[in-house]
């Protein structure tokens, strides 16, 4: 029995759990735990390497699988040959949707596309999602609010991806410095640009790769999203309806 005169709510809580489990102390059965909670990085390295090799060797099959599964998940899917062609695709979409403002995140593919030097119609406003993009506001908090407002008033959000999962037609986005959480969420249209080397086979593969990153860097960052098509609901009469809180339209552009 663990007893002390001053127990915090936390200690009482955990004590109750231990008592319920019939445990007399905080000692744990390490061998039993290690069966499910192993921290051997060597083994993880091997698994991660196998994933990379497998995905590299099958890129073309994975692209086809990704396209099919993405269509099932209700993405609009296109494949273009180069970043330049991707820009042209954006222009076409902007015209078709009569979009006035574009919000983009600083994924490498968007830097390659160099949209700020692309000649859009003059009334289209192009905005980056980075603090430095709204540098006229020196106060961090003010620029944060400004960014939020800009996201809510944008017509199209343009992002790259960190991974694309062929098995399920999913884009994995990891918001961080230069990549806002809002670009793929708030505007009614989301366009995700996928490069070939970002395509991997399964959801399990992503978790293995991310876990390796955890072991290497000690942190996996604050946020990650798996996006599989547009926002949807079936909450009224179990009838599928597209576009509730997130984007109503989702475009996947495979570049390469």
């Amino acid at each position: 029995m663990i007893r002390s005169s001053e127990k915090t709510a936390r200690d009482e809580f955990l004590l109750k759990v231990r008592e319920a489990l019939g445990k007399k102390s905080t000692l744990v059965d390490k061998t039993e735990i290690m069966k499910y909670f192993s921290t051997s990085q060597g083994e993880l390295n091997i698994r991660a390497q196998e994933i990379k090799d497998r995905c590299q060797a099958n890129v073309e099959q994975l692209v086809i699988k990704l396209e099919n599964q993405a269509i099932n998940a209700k993405w609009n899917v296109t494949r273009v040959g180069s970043p330049q062609k991707a820009c042209e695709y954006v222009e076409k979409l902007v015209n078709e949707k009569k979009a006035k403002s574009l919000l983009y995140s600083h994924y490498p593919i968007l830097d390659k596309m160099d949209l700020s030097n692309y000649m859009f119609n003059t009334d289209v406003v192009l905005k980056g999602d980075c603090l430095s993009d709204v540098s006229e506001y020196s106060e961090k908090e003010i620029s944060g609010r400004q960014k939020k407002e800009e996201a809510f008033s944008s017509d199209i959000g343009l992002t790259g991806v960190d991974y694309a999962i062929a098995e399920t037609g999913t884009c994995v986005l990891i918001p961080r410095h230069g990549i806002s959480r809002l670009v793929s969420l708030v505007p009614p249209i989301h366009v995700a640009f996928v490069e070939l080397e970002q395509i991997i086979e399964t959801i399990d593969d992503v978790f293995t790769l991310r876990r390796l990153e955890l072991f290497q860097k000690g942190d996996i960052g604050s946020y990650m999203n798996f996006i599989s098509g547009p926002s949807r609901t079936a909450d009224i009469e179990q009838t599928l309806t597209i576009g509730v809180h997130g984007p109503k339209e989702a475009y996947m552009v495979i570049v390469g």
């Binding site: 998940a73 399920t168 604050s222 798996f226 996006i227 599989s228 926002s231 949807r232």
Partner: peptide
């Protein structure tokens, strides 16, 4: 097979 969103928050 998947829902539209899986969201992972770490702090």
């Amino acid at each position: 097979p998947v829902t539209s969103y899986f969201t992972f928050v770490t702090g």
